[in-house]
């Protein structure tokens, strides 16, 4: 029953993918050459005009190009020509650094705020104001103060991923069931031990949900941040290939951004499953 559902879903997925690729192929294939055209003009316009080739690459072009990239993911021919693997590695490293820093700040801070009604009230207005600020709005300020584009990008990742984690940690810690806290209290468990043996496991699923939202946002933001700061990274690659008018590379980059984002999410989902407990 369940496995047959999975099988049918897989079949439908593959069919949808095939239909999408088919339509894409048909929509971008070469049409009959345009008849009357001066040879100079035809030369100027390239294949687009002479063979009725669409400017939009077809799935076969993208596939061929992707294969090329996959064969040489880590080449480095100077600042504007690096392998996709290198570009992705830069982006992942920035996201990883900014995100880890955010984890290190958000979770302990969230614990403190969640356990202290005073801190919770005192810090609430700041959080409310800071949370809705688009992380990219921090960019000029970051560039001005930090003066290093790469660290500025990391800072932007840090600032965008901190809020979901912080708020979820606060919420998770503050809403630990009173009866579990009471169990610890009747056993005369000290504050530190209580934090690690009762509050942390009880709040872990909520905290992990926040971490999962954060990694998603961080990956969304890194592309935009790298487009702004330039130099390296998958966001810069997209922008650079757009300037080169290489739509094929742009499409490949889009595809890879999606896949990496999915993998990051899956990793967090795996962790999340480890800490959830059935009630």
């Amino acid at each position: 029953m369940n496995s047959s559902l999975r099988l049918r879903a897989a079949i439908v997925s593959i069919a949808l993918l095939a239909a999408f690729l088919g339509i894409w192929h048909l929509a971008t294939r070469s049409t009959a050459p345009v008849a009357t055209m001066s040879p100079e003009y035809a030369k100027l316009m390239g294949l687009t005009a002479t063979q009725g080739k669409s400017a939009m690459p077809g799935p076969l072009d993208v596939g061929a190009k992707l294969w090329e990239h996959l064969k040489r993911p880590f080449y480095d021919n100077g600042p504007n020509d690096k392998g996709l693997g290198i570009q992705l590695a830069y982006s992942i490293a920035r996201v990883g650094t900014g995100y880890l820093l955010a984890v290190l700040v958000a979770i302990p801070l969230g614990f403190l705020i969640g356990m202290s009604p005073l801190l919770s009230r005192a810090l609430d207005p700041f959080i409310q104001v800071l949370k809705p600020i688009s992380p990219l709005a921090w960019m000029p300020l970051a560039l001005y103060t930090i003066k290093d584009s790469s660290i500025s990008a990391i800072f932007v990742i840090f600032i965008c991923s901190i809020w979901p984690m912080l708020l979820n940690t606060v919420f998770g810690v503050a809403s630990v069931r009173k009866e579990w806290i009471n169990v610890a209290r009747t056993l005369e468990v000290g504050t530190i031990r209580r934090a690690f043996t009762v509050i942390l496991p009880a709040a872990a699923p909520t905290i992990l949900t926040g971490m999962r939202i954060s990694i998603g946002i961080a990956w969304l933001v890194i592309v935009a941040a790298e487009m702004l700061v330039g130099g390296t990274g998958i966001g810069y690659f997209v922008w650079n290939e757009w300037n080169n008018l290489s739509i094929t590379n742009v499409i490949i980059a889009i595809l890879l951004i999606g896949i990496v984002g999915m993998l990051l999410d899956q990793i967090l989902a795996r962790f999340s499953r480890l800490v959830t407990f059935p009630e």
């Binding site: 069931r177 009866e179 009471n182 209290r185 009747t186 056993l187 005369e188 009880a202 407990f277």
Partner: peptide, 18 residues
């Protein structure tokens, strides 16, 4: 405050589910 001398059996059993 609470004490290990006085054990409580809670109405809702209050077991730690993890």
């Amino acid at each position: 405050g609470t004490s290990l001398d006085r054990a409580v059996i809670f109405q809702s059993h209050a077991l730690l589910p993890w």
